[in-house]
Design a protein around this nucleic acid. Structure first.
Lengths: 351, 351
DNA sequence: TTCTCTATTGAAACCCGTTTCACTTCATGT
DNA sequence: ACATGAAGTGAAACGGGTTTCAATAGAGAA
């Protein structure tokens, strides 16, 4: 059934015209007589002929494709980012090539070499988890080299040493907002859970937490953990294990909603109620967050807006066909208040 | 900074050799003297030269790319499927081009035309939600036409009228297993929530439900709904609204875990406990399912295995370069028992 | 020293659309 | 009837690799 590939020449000779004419018909060029158009279209439809965009790309020196690099699409935050960015690129007629990075597939020169060989017209780097899997200096060098071949837009905290177009959420501000919200509710003992110092996106939040806690004159509880529910569960246990019930924090800010649901499970297991014994704030406002018990207070980073803006910028840069100056644009985040952090009125009121 | 594109001829003349020699060096052809190799590599590295895979593809008539079509990557089930399939394709050296279908972007001939023009070497169709957005007859015709140009593997219930390579989960069996599990726990009044008759994946489950309920001599409660938490919440309300407390089902099987968490939220709102007043079983064993309260009993369809097997089959077919016979392979599913469906021992024991 | 064989290398054709440029028609104006 | 111009069409060059085939150079054999 797989038909032998027809070329524009096959169509031309069967229709009794030249290849140039077929090309004009296919691309909707106006200077073709109605009669010729019909003759050609008959043959085109007979074979379901579609001109090869590979050959076309060779001539135009444009592949019509952009690349998206992301750590994993299984994290719903990246899925939301990816989905919006994808739709935006498709709407503009570009095909989207996806690349997952992982510890076994670091973003090195072998990796970017593939993007360059395929002549992608631009690259969008989604996500800041990447850098944890490889030496940061190498990443900067690899990206800078990549930028010699195509425009690059990143959606993550700026990579030190890389000057490119960058969109990201003010993660530090979002955590500070969460801290102030909890403080206003009467919480004084607040913990931060998740991330690792290797990850820029995590350390940015952690620093924001420290800064705000310090400003309020409070002692910060910090517990490193990963970015998954499992890590949240384990991290919550580690956080509380050495503390007597009176010394425990009364509120917890998780690095994301995944870690938050893990922590909440641990709290249930320990017999702690949310928000009574422990208020919880997550981050990312994922689809499941309104459905946790209690519904999770969280921070919406507006990934869809971020993804769309980044792609628009990328495509503008692609179509300009020249160097684009690097810049950084910060997107505001929004605290979404639900029931997982109530006012501090319970029996363990502190200070 | 965007360097003027170097070609193999530029490299050749600067290195003082012919283009053929550069080509041989780039592709690791053995018959090149060490001296020539070094001369060429010096220039290649100077310019970070990478041969255009577009030009190479033109000659070889192979793009080195496969396409994945899926309704949305925001549903974690598809994300898991996609992720595994992606990694498998990348491991084999193929680039993955993603296409979302949606009501505004139906899988019609304009859509597949893009795949054909780009000369993708194979297509993987992930997901059975697609068909709800367009007339089923058109879908069959479109896919059959597409198969004239490239191998097609689908991961969803077989599309009527399309003979292609197909992998899917036995959704009917998975629901029947859930019914039997609930029956064994003593439940007699069981409801099915979610999906719509337009979706094959949904109706397959619904039929499985009916068949098993009938076999057990029980009356089936069925409530149509979508595939999202919102739909689950609304559907659960609709299901229970007309029923007196005594007439209510004691257990609910949701079409997926998303619908299940929506329903569970509705039950909480109505003051019903899970599993005390209402046992719940979901489907898909999503990452959040162990973290609901109570942890959700669900069915694991092993999407990663399904995705990998499908891609292996697709690539085998691509590399064979000939027609592949259609077939259907069914993947077993596994009931994952957690705490959202306990034994029927409570005050509302029925029959 | 000369012949033979093999390792290396380059010229040219090929893959398949696109576009420029020149040429042929045919219609309109005079 | 003839000039002018516009519309329609085809030949050929181009884009950037790959591969075949022929040619050359250098090594080993006689």
């Amino acid at each position: 059934m797989l038909g032998e590939r027809k070329t524009i020449y096959d169509i031309a000779s069967e229709a009794g015209v030249s290849a140039a004419t077929v090309s004009r018909v296919m691309s909707g060029h106006p200077n073709v007589s109605a009669k010729t158009h019909a003759k050609v279209m008959r043959v085109v439809e007979k074979y379901q002929f579609r001109p090869s965009s590979i050959a076309r790309g060779l001539y135009h020196q444009a592949s019509g494709m952009v690349g998206f690099i992301l750590p994993s699409v299984e994290n719903p935050y990246y899925a939301a980012l990816f989905s919006a960015a994808h739709d935006e690129a498709r709407r503009a007629g570009y095909a989207v090539v996806v690349y997952h990075t992982s510890p076994t597939e670091p973003l090195d020169e072998a990796f970017t070499g593939d993007l360059i060989e395929r002549r992608l017209e631009g690259v969008l780097l989604l996500g800041g988890v990447v850098e944890a899997t490889q030496p940061p200096g190498d990443l900067a060098q690899t990206l800078t080299l990549l930028m010699r071949h195509m425009p690059l837009v990143t959606i993550c905290p700026p990579v030190p040493g890389v000057t490119c177009m960058n969109f990201h959420s003010d993660l530090s501000a979002s955590v500070r907002q969460s801290v102030r919200h909890l403080h206003a509710l009467g919480h004084r003992r607040i913990a931060f859970l998740g991330g690792s110092y290797q990850s820029r996106s995590a350390s940015e939040r952690e620093i924001g937490f420290m800064v705000e806690m310090n400003k309020l004159g409070l002692t910060a509880f910090c517990q490193e953990a990963g970015h998954t529910p499992e890590a949240g569960e384990l991290g919550a246990a580690r956080l509380l294990a050495p503390l007597s019930p009176e010394a425990r924090p009364t509120a917890l800010i998780a690095i994301n909603d995944l870690v938050a649901i893990g922590a909440m499970r641990q709290f249930r297991r320990m017999g702690l109620t949310v928000p009574g014994d422990m208020a919880v704030i997550g981050c990312d406002n994922q689809f499941f967050s309104p459905y946790t018990d209690p519904p999770l207070t969280t921070v919406d980073l507006h990934p869809a807006q971020l993804g769309r803006a980044a792609v628009q910028q990328l495509l503008a840069s692609v179509e300009k066909r020249g160097d684009s100056p690097g810049f950084t644009q910060v997107k505001e985040s929004t605290l979404v208040v639900r029931e997982s952090c109530g006012a501090r009125l319970g029996r363990r009121e502190i200070q």
